[in-house]
Simulated scan of single mutants.
Amino acid sequence: MDFIISNEQLEQWCSYSPEELKKRKDLNADLRVRSESRQFYREVADLMAEELLANNAKGAATRWIVPAGPIDQWDYFIERVHREQISLKNLWIFMMDEYLDWESRLIPEDAPYGSLHAVMKKNVFSKIDPALMCPAEQIIFPDPRDLDYYDNKIEELGGIDTIWAGIGCKGLIAFCEAPHSRYYRISQEQYRNSKTRIVELNEDTLVALSQRRFGGYYDKIPPKAVTVGMKSILSAKRIVCMLRCGSWKQTVLRVMLLCTETTLEYPVTFAMKYIPEKIVFCDEETLEHPLCKE
Rank of each mutant, 00 (worst) to 15 (best):
M1E: 15
I4V: 15
I5A: 10
I5H: 09
E11W: 00
E11F: 05
W13P: 12
W13R: 08
Y16P: 02
P18D: 10
L21N: 04
K22I: 13
K22M: 13
K23C: 10
K25W: 04
A29R: 09
L31S: 11
S35V: 13
E36D: 14
Y41L: 07
R42S: 13
E43R: 00
M48K: 07
L52H: 04
A54T: 14
N55Y: 07
R63N: 13
W64Y: 15
V66S: 02
A68L: 07
W74G: 04
D75Y: 08
E79N: 11
R80K: 14
V81E: 09
Q85W: 02
Q85C: 05
L88C: 12
L88V: 11
N90S: 13
I93C: 06
F94Q: 04
Y99G: 09
D110A: 05
D110V: 03
P112A: 07
Y113E: 14
K122Q: 14
S126W: 05
P130S: 03
P130G: 04
A131C: 01
R145A: 11
L147M: 08
Y150V: 06
D151I: 06
I154V: 14
E156R: 07
L157T: 13
A165S: 15
G166M: 12
C169Q: 14
K170P: 00
G171T: 12
A174Y: 03
C176N: 15
P179A: 07
S181H: 02
R182Y: 04
R182N: 06
R185V: 12
R185N: 08
I186C: 00
Q188H: 04
R192P: 03
I198D: 08
I198C: 06
V199M: 06
V199T: 12
T205F: 01
L206G: 03
V207G: 00
S210V: 11
S210W: 10
R212E: 15
R213W: 13
K220L: 13
I221Y: 04
M230K: 04
K231L: 01
L234M: 12
S235V: 13
K237I: 12
C241H: 05
M242V: 10
C259A: 15
T262V: 15
Y266Q: 11
Y266E: 11
I275C: 01
L291Y: 13
